[in-house]
């Protein structure tokens, strides 16, 4: 069963026309393949992507400044000792507080056992 052996077979003409029909690569085909290959390699080496590679270049200075300010703030916070918070209510009540009450309400250090005993005892 050979198609060539069949008289007036439209497939013969079709195959002949198909032999002449083919596309050729344009002048930039190689460049496009190489560009795709480079990007595929970059994706494959995911670990080579740093933090700055995913940030658009126009926003890098702003982001760098923001990161630096956040770091400075964190460092300063680490070195400045923490004081108990003093809000408006504490400021208003301060004149009426005895030193022992002040220790109870505002001091972050744990008072000694004697002082605690003294505070617990009922006043005369």
């Amino acid at each position: 069963m050979d198609l060539k052996g069949i008289a007036n077979n439209p497939m013969n003409k079709f195959f002949e026309s198909e032999r002449k029909r083919f596309f050729e690569p344009d002048a930039f085909f190689t460049q496009r393949v190489m560009a795709q290959l480079d990007s595929a390699k970059k994706v494959a080496r995911g670990q080579d992507f740093g933090f700055w590679d995913i940030v658009p270049s126009s926003t890098r200075p702003v982001l760098a400044l923001a990161v630096m300010l956040i770091l400075c703030f964190v460092i300063v916070e680490m070195f400045i000792p923490q004081y108990p918070q003093r809000g408006m209510v504490e400021s208003f009540l301060e004149p009426e507080q005895s030193p022992t009450e002040s220790i109870l309400y505002t001091d972050i250090d744990v008072p000694s056992q004697d002082l605690l005993q003294q505070l617990i005892e009922p006043e005369d």
């Binding site: 083919f22 596309f23 050729e24 690569p25 085909f29 190689t30 393949v33 190489m34």
Partner: peptide
Amino acid sequence: HETIVNQYSAMVFRLVSR
């Protein structure tokens, strides 16, 4: 890689065109 693409792209194109 570039040489391979240059050298064989015509063959690949012809085969895919079929």
